[in-house]
Write a protein that binds this DNA or RNA. Structure first.
Lengths: 144, 144
DNA sequence: CTTCGTCGTAACAAGAATGGTTACTTCGGA
DNA sequence: TCCGAAGTAACCATTCTTGTTACGACGAAG
């Protein structure tokens, strides 16, 4: 499906900020997070920008600049993150409209739309069951 | 997520062949299906090739060539189709391995893998609930 | 045994999404 | 005023999907 790693990087980022703040730091920088996630700071800033628009994080500029959470990890689910960074549907319909003169071509889109809607609904339910706090605890529980 | 329409086109194709065979025809051609789905015959043949490898359809060459189902639409679920044409996972992990020296970097992949596995499991369950016969009936039930 | 329609498949191009990188401007505390 | 980091534009490489053309392989029909 050509899956991307945006949800992964976003979860990584939020867990990192959350842990860092618990260690007494006020803000985290994109460079620190990029170091942990092994990617480029601009990639992190782009993602954090979308998370900020969704109200999950906020940023400070100037001296002592960086990113911080707007609420506790317990009050943040993977669905919140997913909605913040993934715009489109899981499955796409036809690129070009099918032949409406054909019985199948005429009815296939409404028929599949129902199925797809049901699937997206269950995915969203599943995502909403896991908080970022759950993720952080699972991370810390991994033996080293 | 850059969703594709492969599952849609495959379902369209199978429903089309199924209906066509019920109308008394032995085989369907990629050109006929492409006309209904409003795409190119080669696109259909490529998809049908993958469905054939999964054992859902078979093809005949030479005179009177074309495609036919290997079993009834009732015995074919969207999960069978999905497995035949979608190789990868729904969500990807990091492109480059995260910093293993960092607590988050070390534990994030196992932690997220569990979550992702659970989600894929529910998606598969959901897909397995719908047969291609269900799809065809839903298509035929759409008012024109 | 030739013809013809269709499969099978390679090759290529367009388009979009993702991710990485560089570079520059803007902010605001020290 | 200085400086570190955000904000953001621009560009590129890669990959996936889809569409398209082209051509060989096949096999029934005549």
């Amino acid at each position: 499906m050509s899956a991307n790693s945006r949800l992964t990087i976003a979860a990584h980022t939020l867990a990192w900020i959350g842990l860092y703040q618990r260690q007494g730091h006020a803000v985290a920088t994109s460079e620190q997070i990029a170091g942990s996630a092994n990617t480029n700071p601009v990639v992190i800033r782009r993602l954090l920008g979308e998370l900020r628009e969704a109200g999950l994080v906020e940023s400070r500029r100037g001296g002592g600049a960086g990113w911080s959470l707007t609420r506790d990890l317990k009050a943040m689910t993977l669905l919140d993150v997913y909605d913040a960074i993934e715009p489109g549907p899981l499955f796409a319909l036809h690129r070009a409209d099918p032949d409406q003169g054909c019985v199948i071509g005429h009815g296939i889109q409404p028929a599949l739309q129902d199925v797809y809607a049901g699937i997206e609904c269950t995915v969203r339910q599943e995502l909403s069951k896991t908080t970022l706090e759950d993720v952080l605890q699972a991370v810390l529980a991994v033996p080293r």
